[in-house]
Amino acid sequence: MKKKVAVLLSGCGVYDGAEIYETVLTLLRLDEKNVEYQCIAPDLPQRHVIDHCKGEEVSESKAGGAHARNVLQEAARLARGEILPLDQAQPDDYDAVILPGGFGVAKNFSSFAEEGAECSVEPSIRQFVQAFYQARKPIGLMCIAPAIAARLIAPGILCTVGKDAGVEGAMISMGSLHKTCDVDDIVVDNTHKVVSTPAYMLATRITEARDGIFKLVDKVLELA
């Protein structure tokens, strides 16, 4: 039977949503493996909007402001419109879930960008991912997503953000186990069925990100 994977997106754009290259590489590898996938995103206000040319916040762009954006609507850009609202997604329909990185994970899925080790995770995101964890289905985390693993999934999970000492310290204080990892490799926690890779926490070229992401997708499918 053909496998189906949920790809959970936090918007569109590295500084305020899902990392575009990481998402596209994930979808590319799934398609190369002849695996069905569904892009999913929560119908929530985006924390703020970043001008990706200047790296600065757009005026009045905070959630509820005149220029606020919506995570689901932004993720739909990345998914070419083929997006499913999180509240309509059923974990039982999927064999695994993968979370690309991007600051949307640290801003829209959680408060990690502002609060670090004191962060909280958006309840709807946690509930969805927890369903995979409880069902012993594999979970793929890339880039900054492993930083919130202890709050998103459970303490004691072995994962990686590469070689960022600051993020690693926050992860450990929340209860994660961190393993240093090169950009083209993965860390596998077989006990919890969690696979992680640094991706653009370390990548300077798309080919560097590709190698680790392809390995992550392949391992998630092997565990599914």
Rank of each mutant, 00 (worst) to 15 (best):
V5A: 13
A6E: 05
L9Y: 07
L9K: 03
S10N: 09
C12T: 06
G17F: 01
V24P: 01
L25T: 00
L25Q: 06
L28T: 08
R29A: 13
D31F: 08
E32S: 12
E36V: 02
Y37E: 01
Q38W: 09
A41G: 12
A41M: 11
P45G: 01
R47G: 05
H48Y: 14
V49D: 04
H52P: 06
C53I: 15
K54L: 15
G55K: 14
V58I: 15
S61W: 01
G65R: 09
A68D: 09
A68H: 08
R69M: 13
A76R: 02
L84E: 04
D87M: 10
A89Q: 02
Q90M: 11
D92Y: 14
Y94W: 07
I98E: 02
G101R: 01
G102Y: 00
G104E: 02
S110W: 01
S111N: 09
E114F: 08
G116C: 08
S120G: 12
R126P: 00
V129N: 08
A131V: 09
Q134S: 10
I144F: 05
A147H: 10
G156T: 09
G162S: 11
G162L: 06
G162H: 05
K163Y: 13
D164I: 10
D164K: 06
G166S: 10
M171Q: 06
I172P: 06
M174H: 06
S176E: 08
H178E: 12
H178K: 08
C181R: 01
D182P: 06
V183I: 11
V183E: 11
I186S: 03
T191V: 14
K193Y: 00
V194R: 02
S196K: 04
T197D: 10
P198L: 01
P198H: 01
L202E: 08
L202K: 03
L202P: 05
L202V: 04
T204Y: 05
R205L: 15
R205W: 03
R205Y: 09
G212V: 05
D218Q: 09
V220P: 02
E222N: 11
E222M: 11
E222S: 13
E222L: 14
